[in-house]
Amino acid sequence: MKKGYKDLVGEAMAEVKTYSVEEAKAKLGDPNVQFVDVRDVRELEREGVIPGAFPAPRGMIEFWVDPDSPYFKPVFGEKKEFIFFCAAGWRSALTTKTVQDMGLENVAHIEGGFKAWKEAGGAVGVKENKPKS
């Protein structure tokens, strides 16, 4: 293996903004901030969600962020700060680097992911049946 996941995650972490859970919690509810959950739908159902977070599976992010894609989601065209998270912070680091490389501005991710969020007493809700666009 020339470059493993640890290398890729490390490179991403060196290039993206990372918020501690406390910093992220302070931004929850800010109308200029959109939390984005890149976990798999089964994780959302099993573990819960951050209230108001937009569910965007890691496998679709490039297509949902690109306005030229037929799968573009308008939420990514809004002038907001996007804070990505996953279960532990690895997928969200990679996602944040990817969308940053694509040109999406004002992006960050949460150190430790949803696991750290829950452990720190962050707000947790149940998965909605239909995501907002």
Rank of each mutant, 00 (worst) to 15 (best):
D68I: 06
R39Q: 12
G10M: 01
G112T: 00
N106V: 05
L94Y: 03
S69M: 05
P67C: 14
K115E: 11
F35Q: 08
P74W: 01
E15Q: 14
V107C: 10
Q100Y: 06
A123L: 09
G48W: 01
V107N: 07
V36Y: 01
V124L: 11
E78G: 07
A108M: 05
P70F: 03
G125E: 12
E119G: 00
E128F: 09
I50N: 05
P70Y: 02
V16C: 06
T96I: 08
V9S: 02
C86K: 08
D68M: 13
Q100H: 13
P51M: 07
L8T: 02
G125S: 08
L104F: 06
K97P: 02
V124C: 13
V124Q: 09
V75N: 05
K118G: 07
T96V: 08
R39T: 09
A116E: 02
S92V: 03
E45C: 05
S20A: 04
G77M: 04
D101K: 14
E11W: 02
G10I: 04
V38W: 02
M1E: 13
L94R: 08
K17C: 02
I83H: 03
Y71E: 11
M102T: 10
M60W: 15
I50D: 08
K132I: 13
S69P: 08
V36H: 00
V65L: 03
N106Q: 07
K79R: 12
V75R: 11
N32K: 15
A123H: 02
E45S: 09
V16H: 05
R91V: 08
K2V: 11
N106D: 13
T96F: 02
P70T: 07
A93Q: 07
A120Q: 11
V21F: 01
V16W: 04
K130P: 05
G4V: 10
V99C: 03
E119V: 00
R39Y: 10
D68L: 12
S20M: 03
A88E: 14
A87S: 15
S69K: 04
G77F: 03
K97C: 02
F35H: 11
E128A: 15
K130R: 14
V41Y: 10
V33L: 04
S133C: 03
